[in-house]
Simulated scan of single mutants.
Amino acid sequence: MAGLPVDVPVHVALHTTDVEEARAFCRKLYYAPLRIEPVGDPGRFDFSADVVELGPITVGEVGYGTDIRVSIGDLETAYHVLVPLTGVLRSRHHGAMVLADPTRAAVFRPIGHIELEWPGSCRLLSVKVDRAALERELDAALDQQVVSPLLLGASFDLIDGPGRTWVALVRLLLAELRGADGLASQPRMAARWRDLVVSGLALTVEHPYGEEPAGLQGPYRPRTVKRALDAMHAAPARAYTSRELAAIAGVGVRVLQDAFRQHVGMSPMTYLRRLRLDGVHAELTRADPGTASVSEVAYHWGFTHLGRFAGAYRARFGVSPSATLRDRS
């Protein structure tokens, strides 16, 4: 296509036992506010990274050889996905704890501090996507304006569905771009692959918007389901009942519940509770701990029973809502 933007892939690699050299490499390619501290045997520190920069994406395979702790300041400019190829990575981001392994990726939004416990047994794919690129793609895919930063799920499945396909695409792209004579080394072809990585991520990661709020549950969603989803997103704090949502959709309660389970993967009320919990989580991560209170934010999002709310919040994010507010950075 004549108007296709062209980005020339840049391939860089490093293998070193020097911690400072590894820090400098990661700060240059990923984020300046980044700290790397070995917590295992420092004599086993053996950093290796093979990374390709391609316009708005940076894709690499990274390992450290020994247990380390990584601390990253507010991302601000990018979304990030970590996909362990071996081992288990433990992450903490805005009050949410995620264990990532070869079956599940960790996803980070461009807001808040990140702490990673990265064992020497863990080698992973690191995928950085510029904030504007992913937001433009999701906005275009859904044909509606999205709120920045995107309210994304903290992880996604790598065994079945779109997550498996997306990771296979990323691995193939990285393998192709490492070589000098592959098809992807051609700038225009590389640009097409780059766009596939960005658009594929937009359709893979969980988000609360219109057509695909549960991460591509199906290519078609009935109008009855969409009516209920639109109503919930328009007024998530409203005290909906199953009967009211069914009336909005124009079907019976049982029909709507069956349609939601088939096309969204959960019941309407479960979806509404998750939508509210994600809204509370996003607000707590932005709030000032000195002036905001968990109860006020919870009430604002329609939770009237604070005990049940706290239990549901902890089940979804792994920490209490007060911890999310207190740990805001």
Rank of each mutant, 00 (worst) to 15 (best):
M1E: 15
M1A: 15
A2C: 12
A2M: 06
A2H: 10
G3D: 15
T16N: 10
E21N: 07
E21Q: 14
A24G: 13
K28T: 11
P38A: 07
G40I: 07
R44K: 13
G55N: 03
I57A: 12
I57W: 06
T58H: 02
V59W: 03
T66G: 01
D67V: 12
R69P: 06
G73Y: 07
A78K: 07
V83I: 14
G95N: 09
L99I: 11
P102V: 05
A106S: 11
V107K: 03
I114P: 09
L116E: 10
G120M: 08
G120H: 03
K128T: 14
A132R: 09
A132L: 12
D143Q: 12
P149K: 00
S155N: 08
D160N: 05
D160V: 08
T165G: 09
W166Q: 14
V167C: 03
L169Q: 11
L169K: 01
L177T: 07
A184F: 01
M189Q: 12
R192E: 15
W193A: 15
R194G: 14
D195A: 13
L196V: 08
H207M: 02
P208G: 11
Y209A: 10
E211Q: 08
L216F: 15
L216R: 11
R221Y: 02
P222Q: 09
R223H: 10
L229E: 07
A235L: 15
P236W: 05
I248V: 15
G250T: 01
L256K: 03
F260P: 05
R261N: 14
Q262R: 13
H263S: 08
P268T: 08
P268G: 05
Y271F: 15
L272F: 06
L275C: 04
A287M: 00
P289D: 05
G290Q: 10
E296L: 12
F303S: 04
H305R: 11
F309P: 06
G318V: 03
G318E: 05
S320V: 11
S320W: 02
S322Q: 11
A323N: 00
T324H: 09
L325D: 10
D327A: 07
S329T: 06
